[in-house]
């Protein structure tokens, strides 16, 4: 990689854009999955665990089978199983979705570390990227525009979900269950079934997000892989007001803010490196405070969500 000094300070915004594209993918998948689950009226805080399990199992299956895409699929399936566990347990009487989510977060990370021990050594090839930067001679631009296919899937998925919430029977059923379980019941839909399915689908997406971590960027399996990205993505959904398109924008914003620290370091700004690394979190706090009010409820929140009731 050529030194960023070659293009100077222009490299910073470029690196931020590249970071937004590269780092945002797990945020995007987890937040879209959580968005779907929460729109049905449940919160799955366990997606951090699902993400780590997805990363581990995706890496493991890719290593054993030699097929990267089989690894991605396996990560999704493992994520669905975690979603199924959450969904089914939450359907039992007196089970609180938030407490259970935290338990599953612990279980997922713990289990992944346990099962993933033998996977720290072997190196698995990474997912291929598609080069959209062929038109440029500048290596930084080429580097920034090497886009992974999962990101492309994600940016198609966000508007597709948005469309589905408005125009498909299943989308409307999910919204109905999330906003008024009574109304859904009166129309003959079983709220629990819908929520279990929405949690399974959400888990699938989170699992895929996990496989991105181990198979594309950073691209290997270790225990510090996620560093709380799953739980951040869950918070992103509230920030994005339960809107899939806003989830996409929020993920990009987070990815970009996360790339700010390294990019500044690359052009020689070394002071406050750790502070810049905290940029996404400071940004979240600022936006949350600015967009919230103590007097009113969150707009757009599904009415059945236990935190908004």
């Amino acid at each position: 990689m050529a030194t960023p000094e070659a293009i100077g300070w222009v490299g910073v915004p470029l690196a931020v854009i590249a970071g937004a594209i590269r780092v945002s993918t797990p945020f995007l998948f987890v937040s879209l999955g959580e968005c779907l689950t929460e729109r049905s009226g449940r919160i799955n805080l366990g997606l951090e665990g699902t993400l780590v399990m997805g990363a581990m199992s995706g890496y493991g299956v890719a290593w054993l089978s030699g097929s990267l895409w089989l690894g991605v699929l396996a990560a999704g399936v493992v994520g669905s199983l975690f979603g199924l566990l959450h969904g089914v347990l939450c359907s039992l009487p007196k089970v609180n979705d938030i407490a259970l989510g935290i338990a599953l977060m612990m279980l997922g990370t713990g289990l992944a570390f346990f099962l993933g021990k033998p996977l720290i050594q072997p190196a698995v090839e990474n997912l291929p990227s598609i080069n959209f930067g062929w038109w440029s001679d500048i290596p930084q631009v080429q580097e920034a525009l090497k886009i992974n296919p999962l990101f492309i899937v994600g940016i198609i998925l966000a508007p597709a979900m948005m469309w589905a919430f408005r125009n498909t029977r299943w989308g409307l059923i999910v919204r109905m269950v999330g906003d008024s379980a009574d109304a859904a019941r009166a129309m003959g839909y079983n709220a629990n079934t819908v929520r279990v399915l929405a949690t399974v689908a959400g888990g699938f997406l989170a699992g895929i997000g996990g496989s991105f971590l181990s198979l594309y960027y950073p691209g290997s399996w270790n225990e510090g892989l996620s560093s709380g990205q799953g739980i951040t993505a869950v918070a992103l959904v509230i920030f994005a007001r339960w809107n899939p398109l806003y989830c996409l924008y929020a993920s990009l914003l987070f990815g970009g803010a996360g790339a700010l620290g390294p990019a500044l370091q690359a052009v020689g700004v070394t002071q406050g490196y750790y502070l810049f690394n905290a940029a996404p979190y400071i940004l979240t706090l600022i936006i949350m405070v600015a967009s919230s009010s103590s007097r009113r409820r969150l707009a757009g929140a599904p009415a059945e969500l236990s935190v908004t009731r």
Partner: peptide, 29 residues
């Protein structure tokens, strides 16, 4: 019912269509 069974965040049209037994998979609004 005394307590309304319409979904508050959905429009009247969405509510009426969804009340039907045979909602198509993709709805032609």
């Amino acid at each position: 019912y005394q307590h309304f069974t319409l979904v508050p965040s959905m429009t009247v049209l969405e509510n009426l269509v969804m009340a039907r037994a045979d909602v198509p998979a993709i709805i032609d609004w």
